[in-house]
């Protein structure tokens, strides 16, 4: 939609709500994407750090 008249926010970003509580579930320790996830978690890397490697 078009920006309403008079809308303003700090750095043009307005944080309003927050996510609904998340659910704890088990992910299946299978497949290349899990291994990548597990590696990030273990080395406490973020996605972009991981991409660079």
């Amino acid at each position: 939609p078009v920006l309403p008249q008079g809308w303003s926010a700090e750095k043009d970003f307005k944080s309003i709500g927050q996510l609904s509580p998340a659910t704890q579930r088990n992910i299946e320790p299978v497949g290349p994407h899990f291994l990548a996830h597990e590696r990030r978690k273990r080395h406490q890397r973020t996605f972009s750090e991981d991409d660079r490697i």
Partner: peptide
């Protein structure tokens, strides 16, 4: 690495998305 310490992870309860434009500019 297959221990529940690793595999139990929060999952999003709802989808996150974006309101985008429709034919009607006012609505998303």
């Amino acid at each position: 690495s297959t221990h529940p310490m690793v595999t139990v992870t929060p999952h999003l309860r709802n989808a996150i998305g974006v309101m985008v434009v429709s034919e009607d500019v006012k609505k998303g």
